[in-house]
Each structure stands twice: as structure tokens, then as C-alpha cells.
Design a protein around this nucleic acid. Structure first.
Lengths: 204, 204
DNA sequence: AGGGTTGTCTACCGTCCGGTAGCGGCCGAT
DNA sequence: ATCGGCCGCTACCGGACGGTAGACAACCCT
């Protein structure tokens, strides 16, 4: 009933949609529930986004922008190969701590097929290129183990996103707990793992 | 119309359900489609599995059994830490090559919550324990970098399953192709990555 | 004051989906 | 030959969901 004003309502709806798409999956989340969670009727949601697919696209773009911001901010003023890699991982874990459904949503985006994922990835493309160049020059400098840099980036991605999204597996394998402390432990593990995988022979 | 005989029909339905649950997700796959794909009506499916949930449970158990078989077979006659780890990864990639939806289904199982995942993981629990012991003794022997073995197993899991399921990401990051050769390349990458992450200081 | 725009609502539609009811054919045992 | 269970079918139900139509209220501009 209260009129909140267009732009604000839009972003609230997108944020809630990301939460629910992440938790329930795109198919599993209903417009009714998303709208209800922000205190509005489905038809109001459909006023802002003419179709469920349009809502998804808005979510994908918003997620891409948000992630790009977070990573760019983490890179500011960081020097040295390892500092930068660690800062990126840390920033993503921070984002996941404050917004647990965010990585889930990204994984769901991948599941929805390449077209959907591109909407998200396009925003991040400059960062992707930067990361590949970063890894390649690290290899040239002898600070990173030599390998295909794009493939390495993919593997790093899967390790980070996986450790943020596979809660059930974590529970079954390790005996999880959902506390923030546990998240930090996982971050440390991923950082150690990645560091070990990155460092070249004789660097330790 | 043709009567195929109970047990055979059951397994055919389960296999098709795993395919569709993997591709479309649990919510996205319909009983009509699953039944239709094996040439039978939905009501016949419901004759074998009284409810969609029961079908899911059968799939989870079947998937657990299948994976346990594949891994156990891969471990037969293998000696040495690295041979065994590599053999397990290879066997999982082989399974994924012949049945691409299988890893997708496992990931979906994780998404459906701890209860569902346990149905799958319980079958694998002996192997899980074996893997943890294996990693721990490798650490004691100085053949594996020291760390929390359960956590390490989790990270290995995410790296392998991630690289098998995040096709859209692979496409966006590397410029994918879905050929079998590309799968082998990814396997080599994961093996190299894991090896680098496992080996202790000064082992190279 | 009043007309257009913006935002939210009620009411409804068509479709799809999981699940129920119940019929009928095939087949082996008696 | 017939009877009972196994197996597959047609027909249907109730509910959920995405989306449409249109009323109505608040606000803004002139």
C-alpha cells in the first residue's frame, strides 16, 4: 500500500529475487513469494518487470555489477601477486557472508544456460581479462606455476564458488556448521589451497 | 504398451529421471516428460514410484551406489598416494563423459538440502572415511601437505564437481567446446591443480 | 482545479503439474 | 478355463503459477 517510489522498489525487488532465485532456483521461486517478501502483490512486481524472465535479467545484471564493484574495490591499492589474489577471494567471501544467497544465485545462473550466464558475465569481462593477464604475467615472472591461465582461472572459480555453495556436501563431509566462524575457516582453507596450487616449484 | 518387466523398467525410469533431474532440476523436470522419454505414461511411472519424492530417493540411492562402484573399481590394484588420487578423478571424469547429467544431478542433490543429500552420501560414507584416512596418513608420511583432511577432501570435491558442472562458466571464461577432448583437457587441468595443491613443500 | 503519470490493487484466465480413480489386458498358477 | 496379480492405460481433479485487464488512488505539473 505505501508508495515507496520507483527506483527503490525496483532494487528491493531485485535483491529479494536474487535471494529467492538463489535459494529455490529460478523455477522454484514464485513471483507471488518474491513480491510477498517485500510487502507487495505480484502484479506490482509485474508492473516493474513485465515478465519473470525480465526480472531474471535484471538480477543477472545487478549481480554482475555488484560483484564487479566488490572485486574492483578489493584490488585497490593492492600490490604483489599474492596480495591481490587473496584480496579477491576475501572480498567474495565477505559478500557471501552478508548475502549468503548471492553465490547460490550465481551458480543457478550458470545452470540456466550460457545465454543467461552471459548477462551476468559480460559485466565482469574486463575483470576476467585483467585476471587472465595477471596470471599470465605472474607465470612469465616465475611467480605463478606455468599453465593455461584461462583454465586456471576457471578452476579457481569453481573452487571458490563450490566452497560457498555446496553446504550440504560440506555438512556430509566435514560435519558442517553454518556459523560465520565456519565460513572463515573455509576461506582460510581455500586460500591455502589456491596458494599451494599457484606457487611454482621451489618458491616455498 | 509393451511390457518390459518390473525391475528393468524401474532402472530405466531411474536413469532417465537422473538425466532430467540433472538437466532441468528437480522442480523443472516433470513426471510426464520423464515417463514419456522412456515410452510410457506418467501413471505407469507413478505405479513404480508412488510419488515424485520417492522417485528422487530412488535416484539418489542409485547414484550413490553407482558412484561408489565406479570409485571402488578405480582403486583396485592401485598403489601409491598419487596413483590412487588420480585414478579416482579419472574414474569420475569417465563417468561424466558417458553420462553428462550425472554430476549435474549430484549437484542438484546438494541443492535440495542436507536431507536429500544424505540419501546419496550415506552410500558413499565408507569411501569418504577411507579417503580421509588416506589423506591423513599421507600427511603423516610427509607425502601430502599438512592440513585438515576432511576440509581438503571437501575442497577436492568442489574442484572436481565444479569443473564437471559449470559448463556455462567454462564457456564464458575459456571459450568452451563440449567435445570429449575438451573434457579430457579439463581433467588434465584438475589433476595438475590437485597435484600441485596436495604436494608438500620441497617435493617437486 | 484538473489531467496525465505512476504505483498498487482485485479479479480472473489458461496452463501445467502432481496425484487419484478405476478400467482392462497379459500371464502364470491352479 | 479361470482367477489373481502385475502392468499400463484413459480420464479427471485441485492447486499453483505466470500473465492479463482494468479499477483506483496518490502525486506532479501547469
Amino acid at each position: 500500500m505505501p508508495r515507496t517510489g520507483g527506483a527503490e522498489r525496483r532494487t528491493t525487488l531485485v535483491e529479494e529475487a536474487i535471494r529467492q532465485f538463489g535459494r529455490e532456483g529460478y523455477g522454484g521461486a514464485s513471483l507471488d513469494d518474491i513480491a510477498g517478501a517485500v510487502g507487495v502483490r505480484k502484479q506490482t512486481l509485474l508492473y516493474y518487470f513485465q515478465t519473470k524472465d525480465a526480472l531474471l535479467e535484471a538480477c543477472l545484471q545487478a549481480a554482475g555489477i555488484r560483484l564487479a564493484e566488490v572485486i574492483a574495490e578489493a584490488l585497490e591499492g593492492k600490490e604483489g601477486y599474492w596480495d591481490r589474489a587473496e584480496a579477491v577471494i576475501h572480498s567474495v567471501f565477505d559478500l557471501a557472508a552478508e548475502w549468503p544467497e548471492f553465490p547460490m544465485f550465481i551458480r543457478e545462473a550458470g545452470r540456466l544456460g550460457p545465454l543467461a550466464f552471459e548477462r551476468f558475465a559480460d559485466v565482469l569481462d574486463p575483470l576476467r581479462r585483467r585476471a587472465v593477464d595477471f596470471l599470465r604475467s605472474g607465470m612469465d615472472d616465475g611467480q605463478v606455476r606455468k599453465q593455461d591461465p584461462a583454465m586456471l582461472l576457471f578452476t579457481l572459480y569453481t573452487a571458490v564458488v563450490g566452497s560457498l555453495t555446496e553446504a550440504s556436501v560440506l555438512n556430509a563431509v566435514v560435519g558442517a556448521d553454518k556459523s560465520r566462524a565456519s565460513l572463515r575457516r573455509r576461506e582460510k582453507e581455500v586460500v591455502a589451497f589456491v596458494r599451494a596450487a599457484l606457487e611454482p616449484v621451489g618458491e616455498r
